[in-house]
Design a protein around this nucleic acid. Structure first.
Lengths: 140, 140
DNA sequence: CAGCAACTCTACCTTAACGTTAGAGTAGAG
DNA sequence: CTCTACTCTAACGTTAAGGTAGAGTTGCTG
């Protein structure tokens, strides 16, 4: 499928997807006669993985590092034991940082909710005009 | 207090704090004889507010917009009714977008956790060498 | 008071991750 | 064929920050 559909399905902009190619993060599996990028389901899956990793604050290079490792682990031709262990070690390292980054994300969410509460409180104290336009108490 | 202590207390780098001044986001209340930035507790509070807003993806300009509004609402000299209502309206708008952005943050966190689970599953399936180095099952 | 370590200043350059725009080419329905 | 909707490359712009150099400031300390 071509870039527009991929963008629609992944929620990433075509520009972003092209950027990911520039940095070697997700290379389309093929090109059409005329040069259009053609993506497979596997490519889309990879883009999805990137999207899930993004909020964790990894750089594109880091994500490429992880995706390359898992790709090689899943490859048809099995890598030899030594390299396999090295790859697994790398994935383990990513798992650790991911755990830490998720903690950080949780913290940020908590802080943001705290901030939102402050905002609501301020508006609550200061009488507005049309209460019906307010958010339905977003289950804080 | 000067920038180093502020950095320590806010968790922001001195460089970032200076950057916030360049964009007009947080201007230090005073300067020393020799030109050192001097911050008050109020300045620090403002920086803290910025830090809480940051994960929500507001631009620095947007944050300045909100902080300026609340500052003027809290000012000693009360603004006239018309302007006050305008300011409140602005704050209400921010509250709405904040609510939406928090939802988005929650979604991203969920996706990230999903990703982390995938990573763990992959490592679980592929036997490692030293199980003791693994994270203590970060209460997924 | 001279000296010094630790800190801070300005100014400018660099980076990451896209967004925007222009001008040209492609796909495929009719 | 011929549109219309996409897509391409290339280059420049933007946002938020980090890095660095060279000079100045603070405030102690002997």
């Amino acid at each position: 499928m071509q870039i527009g559909e991929v963008a629609a399905r992944t929620g990433l902009s075509p520009r972003t997807i092209r950027h990911y190619e520039e940095t070697g993060l997700v290379i389309p599996s093929a090109r059409s006669q005329g040069g259009f990028r053609l993506y497979t389901e596997t490519d889309v899956a990879r883009l999805m993985a990137v999207r899930r990793m993004k909020p964790l604050g990894f750089t594109l290079d880091e994500m490429r590092g992880l995706l390359d490792a898992t790709d090689r682990l899943d490859a048809a031709e099995p890598v030899d034991g030594i390299e396999r262990e090295a790859l697994l070690e790398r994935v383990r390292a990513y798992e650790q940082t991911t755990a830490r980054k998720i903690e950080e994300l949780r913290l940020q969410l908590a802080r943001a909710e705290d901030f939102a509460a402050t905002l609501r409180a301020r508006l609550g104290r200061a009488p507005g005009e049309d209460t019906s336009t307010r958010a339905p108490a977003a289950h804080a």
